[in-house]
Simulated scan of single mutants.
Amino acid sequence: MSSPLNLFDQFISPSLLGFPLLVLAIIIPWALIPKISSQSILLTSLILFIVTLNIMGLLPYSFTPTTHLPLNLALAFPL
């Protein structure tokens, strides 16, 4: 008999054999990016960070952290 679904089960990070798939979603895009020149490292790293966070939203039953206002404000004020 399966356990009843909870309202907050949609926010549980998906995993495969006990390994969180969120880690793979973060590591794989960074491994495919070529070496960055030192001139535009701030802008490039910021864009890659935002893209990585938004790609995590493509995982089933997950949401993107960039939808939260505090993260957007934390990125916007220093820049």
Rank of each mutant, 00 (worst) to 15 (best):
P20F: 00
I36A: 09
L79C: 10
L79H: 04
N72V: 10
M56L: 11
N6S: 13
N54I: 15
I28G: 01
L48D: 05
A74M: 12
L24R: 00
I36E: 10
A76P: 04
P14K: 01
L7K: 15
T64E: 09
P29A: 07
A76D: 12
F77H: 08
F49S: 05
I41C: 04
S40N: 09
F11W: 13
F49C: 05
L43E: 14
L48T: 06
F19L: 12
A76G: 15
F77A: 15
L73M: 12
I28C: 01
L79M: 11
S45E: 08
I27D: 02
P34W: 01
Q10K: 15
L75N: 06
L79E: 11
N6V: 01
I50P: 11
I41M: 06
I27R: 00
S3R: 09
L69F: 14
P65W: 00
T67R: 13
K35H: 05
V51G: 06
L75P: 06
I33L: 04
I28D: 00
N6H: 15
L73S: 10
G18L: 04
L32C: 13
P60L: 03
L42M: 10
S37M: 06
L24Q: 01
L43T: 13
I55S: 09
L24P: 00
L32Q: 03
L71F: 08
F19R: 04
L32S: 07
I33K: 15
P14R: 01
P60C: 03
W30F: 12
L5C: 05
L73K: 10
L17K: 14
Y61E: 13
S45M: 06
N6L: 09
L75Q: 06
F11V: 10
W30Q: 10
S15K: 04
D9T: 00
L48K: 11
P65S: 10
L75C: 04
L17G: 09
D9M: 01
F77T: 11
L46Q: 07
I47T: 11
N72E: 14
I27S: 08
M1K: 13
P29I: 00
P14W: 03
T52S: 12
V51D: 05
N72Q: 15
I26M: 09
P4K: 15
L46T: 07
L21H: 00
S15W: 02
F49M: 10
L22G: 08
L17M: 15
I26Q: 05
F11E: 10
W30L: 12
W30T: 11
L53D: 02
L59M: 04
L24F: 15
I36P: 01
S62K: 00
S13L: 12
F77K: 14
L58C: 09
Q10C: 13
P60S: 03
P4S: 08
A74N: 02
